[in-house]
Design a binder for these strands. Sequence first.
DNA 1: ATGAAAGCGCTAACAG
DNA 2: CTGTTAGCGCTTTCAT
Lengths: 336, 336
Amino acid sequence: MRDKRAVTIFDVARASGVSYSTVSRVLNGFAFVKESTRQKVLNTAEKMGYVANLQARSLAGGKSQVIGLVIPNLDEGYVNSISSGIDEALTKANYDLMIYTNKYGKEAKYVNSIIHGPSDGLILLVPLIPSSYLDTLRHKHFPHVLIDQIDPSAQSSSINSSNFQGAYEATSYLISLGHRRIGFIGGIPEIHSAQERLKGYKQALSDHQLAWDESLIQTGNFQHQLAYENSQKLLNLSPPPSAIFASNDLSAFGAMEAIRERGLNIPEDISLIGFDDIPQASISYPKLSTVRQPLKEMGKLAVEMLLAQLEQKQSQPQQVILTTKLVIRDSCKGLI
Amino acid sequence: MRDKRAVTIFDVARASGVSYSTVSRVLNGFAFVKESTRQKVLNTAEKMGYVANLQARSLAGGKSQVIGLVIPNLDEGYVNSISSGIDEALTKANYDLMIYTNKYGKEAKYVNSIIHGPSDGLILLVPLIPSSYLDTLRHKHFPHVLIDQIDPSAQSSSINSSNFQGAYEATSYLISLGHRRIGFIGGIPEIHSAQERLKGYKQALSDHQLAWDESLIQTGNFQHQLAYENSQKLLNLSPPPSAIFASNDLSAFGAMEAIRERGLNIPEDISLIGFDDIPQASISYPKLSTVRQPLKEMGKLAVEMLLAQLEQKQSQPQQVILTTKLVIRDSCKGLI
DNA sequence: ATGAAAGCGCTAACAG
DNA sequence: CTGTTAGCGCTTTCAT
């Protein structure tokens, strides 16, 4: 079985001739320790290869230096980019990462077991989280921040990107290219970001005196397959749209496939624009024009906000919105 | 600050009128507990919303129900697919997941802190891991399994896929299509799987009486960018190859870009085949023919092998090789 | 400035 | 079958 015997704080104490509470103080960067003692302890600890036992530390009421991240899946481009940003920031701050994949609609009991786990705090990157979930977190005063979700009560810190604005710009761009019939492939209707993107689309249309046509609007689920099917419906319209705005890049790729199957070319026959700017967007063919969300920054910022909470530097919940940016590549073309 | 007061095993004990060791026994599925007591305890635990404290459990020498996963990055398609398989298997087995991203060449001291963390066991999905790393793991008898790595000493359990065979088949397929000049884009030369794929390529060539030409072989790093550059070199050859075998799909996409920039079409002007079969391979244009590694299964199997170790069901290290499969899509064409 | 002592919540012998 | 008793390694008052 696994060897238990490791160097403990106790060993270090004995070796450096002080009590173990002193060692603890030194290790935790406490004030009121004589500099010479501090050095001595630090040295012997180093020499003995001491490594703190996180379980013990956390049990005793200290910090475990791990933060939890709740995500729907481990293999979704957009989530991974954000997670990667989180991981980098965490590494820099000397924290470890615990991943909880939360399939949609898991009971709120779940969050309880997370709270009882090693995490000092939690980042939630899950759309459609049950409100009981958040209630528990708040009720227990468990530090957390939300990504890509809106907290209606503004009691939790959250990070979003400018979904409305991004969608508005994408649509306006298409309009400026001369498109009048622009198909829209939505995301999951219950999700805030999906709603905002739809609003942005509609607003751009009406701001340009274009009536929007319900038949041009397909609700989706942010996935390739459904976007593919919905694009077929769009293409069956007469006349079909001359451009399609997909609520995320994955959906845009689904649209690409449907368009190609009709023997149509992008952007010659039909323009296409996405949302997210996941890595694939820049290596697809044609390269996808899209609205970039600052994915990694969102992750990084989430970590900063969470750590600020942990260090009690920031007590007021904060809502931040990061700006998106239109990235023009090769999938859109002006109507002649 | 974070509320500490939660229902403990002690509370449950009192509420159900037994000692807390009995509660512990019930919770850990021990035998020798009267059925009526067991039920009573289980019920009150449920009723009180008891959730085990993993830190305490693990400190006390029990299992923490978390396993660690060491990966290079959080945003690499191939790694994510495997991780996803790991996560699913873990969830089923009621384990949580701790992620450690290990940039190449981090010191072995690192592994020590993992051992002192909450993990009951470790899955290593890191090419080029320093041997001191593995030595530490073995020396401390810390349960672990390797993915996509060979342990020369066969002292650690490992999971690989049939890299040689897969590359052999891909190359043979290209040859059967009539190709004679087949470019090869390699992976990181130090990595075992990359070496095997190169060997498979060469073997297929020589088995078909084709001398292999050094200029056709480019070493790479499994990344898009370098593959792109190397493909340009290949395309500059005279005559250029009529087909390219890329050591992984990501590299194949790099090649795609280079080929397109020349105004060449895939597969009409040049055939292309990859390795891995990451999700993007089936939605690219053209859809990429490739060698499928059973990514999710690799992850799943890793979990099974690790849990077997934890339950001491399996003590002998095991080396398993999963078979790859040629997936023919649209990126290869016979030479007329 | 530093030592002593009391837990944190749980597992695992050891007695009954 | 079940209760008692030690710890696991560390943080944190409370003294000194």
